[in-house]
């Protein structure tokens, strides 16, 4: 997993509550055999004017000019600003895969759905919960200032704004440690290789038929 330490990046606003995982990545794309490549179909139904199916050349599809991510001023955004209950719906890990593949590394919202929140950490995306009024203030700042950027410092747990000072945020210490060090669960478990081997040795004596 990619390490996350500090990030200074353009912010894109997605001004809706209850954005569900089906909206983030519609179900027809789940037949894919890849974990990557979902970026072009992120928010597919909102982003394009036609109906998307796997295998289409997305670069040739008609874009919906009204969808916020299609506006030139938000191209290259790595921080997504969102509203309540972001990521509700199914447990599909394709949702954080799509956000990450598109380029988002941070999502800021007043609240997240549980499973989605967990899945983000497994995929190097930092979801940040802030008070609804703070989020609301950020929405206003983004709209008012083209090219609006934030700096997210995970170690210090601080978001630096161009104007208005720093915002403190909370993050679970264990998850923070994993993100900063780029440790996915696998990387983490592999720190305990000796324990696993010791277990296997002991178990192979107790239950040798499991290790034929």
């Amino acid at each position: 997993m990619e390490k996350f330490q500090t990030l200074t990046a353009l912010v894109a606003p997605l001004d809706r509550s209850n954005v569900d995982t089906d909206a983030i990545i519609p179900k027809q794309f789940l037949k894919s055999i890849k974990r990557s490549g979902f970026g072009p179909n992120l928010f597919d139904a909102w982003r394009y004017l036609d109906h998307g199916e796997p295998g289409m050349d997305n670069s040739k599809r008609p874009l919906n000019p009204d969808f916020v991510l299609n506006q030139p001023r938000y191209l290259g955004a790595k921080i997504l600003l969102a509203r309540e209950n972001f990521g509700c719906g199914s447990s599909r890990e394709h949702a954080p895969w799509a956000l990450q593949d598109y380029g988002f590394r941070v999502i800021i919202a007043p609240s997240f759905a549980d499973i989605f929140f967990n899945n983000c950490f497994k995929n190097g995306v930092l979801p940040i919960v802030l008070d609804a009024d703070v989020v609301d203030g950020l929405f206003k700042d983004v709209y008012a200032n083209e090219g609006y950027q934030l700096t997210v410092d995970l170690a210090a747990q601080i978001i630096n704004r161009p104007v208005g000072g720093a915002i403190q945020f909370e993050v679970d210490s264990f998850r923070k440690y994993c993100l900063i060090n780029g440790l996915d669960d696998i990387g983490l478990t592999l720190q305990h290789v000796d324990d696993i081997r010791a277990y296997e040795q002991k178990r192979a004596q107790q239950a040798p038929w499991l290790f034929q």
Partner: peptide, 9 residues
């Protein structure tokens, strides 16, 4: 993700 975790560890 857990499938991968089991494969790897």
């Amino acid at each position: 993700s857990e499938v991968e975790h089991v494969l790897a560890t």
